[in-house]
């Protein structure tokens, strides 16, 4: 494992912890898109089907369990927790899941490396992860005041994706490899979706003002 991959995984872990911290201690999910969280739960459920069939490493298995557990518990908190669910911006979080899920499933059925159930599900998870942040970005744009934790959550997620690109570049030059167009293109598209957010995030940080995305 190289330093970019480890930093990427740790940033991903940090993003989940920031979100759980906000939900668990402040008991608020204001500004958090349930749609995005449900899509991530689906991403992990379809990608980690190999958790029961292939053993890669203890690290790999533990991280998979953390991402599965955290994504489903975040969804549970927002939907069912007595206090947390009241802070959910239901009227603002209107992005329709199926507009992302159906095209991703169709694309996975036609563009994949192997036509097996596990492989198509894995490819679907890559496509879906690439666009799963969209409901969250739309919600941020509609929210006039983005709180620090929500801003940091999205920033850490974007940083994780960017670090994975460096990891692929590093692996390309240092390891025997196959060409993984699907993984790479989906990863680059996903990172590009954060470009606009990053711009405003750094502007607000530089000028020391509250983060606000233009409508």
């Amino acid at each position: 494992m190289n330093i970019f991959r480890l930093a990427g995984d740790m940033t991903h872990l940090a993003s989940v912890l920031v979100l759980l911290l906000k939900i668990h201690t402040i008991k608020s999910c204001a500004g958090v898109s349930l749609k995005t969280q449900e899509l991530y739960a689906l991403v992990f459920a379809t990608r980690y089907l190999d958790i029961v069939t292939d053993f890669i490493s203890v690290y790999n298995t533990v991280m998979k369990l953390i991402f599965l557990g955290s994504s489903f518990s975040i969804v549970w908190y927002i939907r069912h927790h007595r206090v947390v669910r009241r802070s959910y911006d239901k009227d603002q979080d209107t992005f329709r899941h199926y507009l992302l899920m159906i095209p991703c499933m169709l694309l996975a059925l036609f563009v994949h490396e192997k036509f097996t159930f596990k492989e198509v599900m894995w490819t679907f998870s890559l496509y879906l992860e690439a666009v799963a942040i969209l409901p969250q970005l739309v919600l941020l744009q509609r929210t006039r005041n983005i709180d620090n934790l929500t801003g940091q959550y999205v920033f850490l997620l974007g940083a994780y994706r960017g670090l994975y690109i460096f990891n692929w570049i590093y692996r390309y030059f240092t390891e025997p490899h196959f060409v993984h167009w699907i993984t790479w293109i989906a990863g680059v598209v996903q990172t590009l979706l954060y470009a606009d957010f990053f711009y405003y995030y750094f502007e607000s940080w530089k000028n020391n003002v509250r983060l606000q995305l233009p409508a």
Binding site: D9, H12, D50, D54, S57, N60, K64, R171, P176, H177
Partner: peptide, 10 residues
């Protein structure tokens, strides 16, 4: 079975 390196990623 071919080696499939990105599968060890998360």
């Amino acid at each position: 079975e071919e080696e499939y390196d990105v599968k060890d990623e998360l």
